[in-house]
């Protein structure tokens, strides 16, 4: 996103990337559907997977919140406070909109005041 004029990406290279990355990505997405077509899921897997959304999504977002790339990886306390406020609001109200509203109010609202 620099202001300098950018030479266009070579079309062959672009299409190789679009098709190659697309094929690998789809293979990962369908992998376990294909596997479980013939093989039953191991007992215990379903119990373990109950925790999946509470672990993979926080594991992706925690580093984004604590070490944001836009600040060059420097810790920004406002982001941490806003994320914790959103987490608390979501768990208490069980509402998606309240989670977003509280997180946004703290991050952009409080951020503008500070």
């Amino acid at each position: 996103m620099s202001a300098a004029p950018m030479a266009a990406i070579d079309p062959t290279r672009f299409w190789l990337l679009a098709l190659g990355l697309g094929a690998i990505t789809y293979a990962m997405r369908i992998s376990f559907m294909a596997l479980m077509r013939r093989h039953a899921p191991p007992p215990g897997l379903i119990r373990a997977l109950r925790f999946a959304p509470f672990t993979i999504l926080p594991a992706i977002l925690a580093p984004m919140v604590v070490f944001p790339t836009s600040g060059g990886g420097e810790v920004d306390p406002l982001r941490i406070v806003a994320a914790l406020a959103a987490l608390a609001a979501g768990a208490l109200t069980r509402s998606m909109l309240a989670t977003i509203g509280v997180g946004a109010a703290v991050f952009w609202g409080l951020g503008a005041l500070l």
Partner: peptide
């Protein structure tokens, strides 16, 4: 792009799992 746009993705993830805790 300088208004903290990179907080949007973490916030959307929180909105998915926090209400289900």
């Amino acid at each position: 792009m300088d208004w903290g746009v990179d907080f949007i993705v973490p916030l959307s993830f929180l909105a998915i799992f926090a209400p289900a805790l």
